[in-house]
Amino acid sequence: MKKAGFGCLGFFVVLAVIAVVINAVKFLFSHINGFFLAFAFLSLLFAFLSFFFPRLGFWAKKKTKFSSSTGYFILAIIFFILFGITAPTQDTTHQKSDYQTAATKAKNTAGKSGSNPKEDKSKPAEAAVPAVKKHKKISTPSNQHAATLVETVDGDTIKVIYKGKEKTVRYLLVDTPEEKKPGTCVQPYAVSAYNKNKQLVNSGKLTLEFETNGDTRDKYGRLLAYVYVNGKSVQEELLKDGYARVAYIYHPPYKYLSKYEKDEKIAENKHLHIWSQKGYATDSGFNGCSKSTAAAKSSSAKQSGTSGAGSSSAYQNNPADDQESNMVCKGKIKGNANSKIYHLPGNPYYNRTKDNIVWFCTEAQAKKAGYRPSK
């Protein structure tokens, strides 16, 4: 029993010794520069004492004042060098305290600025704290796809680069007043809707989301999408501000239809923009023309017409039915007055282009009128 008891006691003693040694080593390495400095001063002391007691020079066989003193001077120099190597720099020593001091000043500045806003203008908070400024990353949901803006066409249409190709994107479920449609006048708030849309899509990272019910393209071949900028819905912003109405509900259910209807109702109740004139925004579109109607019709006629080798009326269609009208030639080239793109017979989008058609006999005529070939 005594042996067993002694064994247990010895085991704990060994553990205690190991713990002491580990902590001693940690302390030694964390304060090693202090030890080097102490040894350096001790070496200087022994170098002085060696003049009087040469026997202190234990390394020399012939213990003289010179050999003993010189040895300790050399040790002192070595320890001073080691102290210099291991000593922390001033920046490292005071980094934490400097940061805390700056943070405290920033906090005090923020506290003062809360009571006196005028001070904020002359003392920006960023200058107070020497910290790295963090940029907020905007994450893209998995159901949204990145796109690069090319051009804002009107209040509910944009052109983008999507998957390496230029695409025209028509906003799902919303409609804004017309300003560029051939054969129609410029409608009230059309320019305002265009400017609002342009401001939104130019303000950040552009992403597209597509509906899962199959509505991915309209009859003109344009992509149908929910459009976002920095994660904010462009459709919602247009509806809330009274620049758009909910429309084109062809294949319900739609993901955001009920939300859009609520946004539309809010703007309608506030009589914002398109809702400020009674009877202007209806279920079938917008009624009325802006004061620039005459100028708009003239501009529309110039855009729809094509000059060239004959009468312009021979090469432009009637926007009401979009029937082929260039019977005097064999070119039969279709131009879309909205997208300003022309399609040759045999092109995948040739038969899908059925409205807003401007007819051309040659590609040269189409390009001269400002149209570009379909990709």
Rank of each mutant, 00 (worst) to 15 (best):
S192R: 06
T92F: 10
T176E: 10
A125S: 14
Y248M: 04
A296L: 00
S68H: 08
V229P: 02
A4L: 11
E179D: 04
G155I: 12
A24G: 14
R217T: 14
A190I: 02
K198S: 09
Q199A: 13
L42I: 15
E363P: 05
L45W: 14
P348Y: 08
A247K: 09
V150I: 14
T306K: 01
A125F: 15
F35V: 15
A364Y: 10
V186C: 00
V14N: 01
V227I: 15
V13F: 13
V227P: 03
D218E: 06
I357S: 01
K240L: 15
I161Q: 06
E261H: 01
K196M: 09
P177K: 00
A106S: 13
S307Y: 14
T64A: 03
A24W: 12
I81A: 13
F73A: 07
G279C: 05
S300I: 01
K107R: 13
A295Q: 06
R222C: 02
A106I: 09
A193M: 03
L206V: 09
Q323S: 12
Q100Y: 12
N317C: 11
T92D: 11
H94L: 08
G71L: 09
K62L: 08
N195R: 09
A87R: 13
K96D: 13
Y72C: 04
Q199Y: 11
D321F: 08
N351R: 11
E324G: 04
F53L: 11
G114P: 02
D241F: 04
I78V: 15
Y342T: 00
K278F: 04
G288A: 05
S300E: 05
V150E: 04
K340W: 05
F360Y: 07
P252I: 02
A127D: 15
S284V: 15
A40F: 06
K167A: 05
G370I: 11
G288N: 05
Y350T: 06
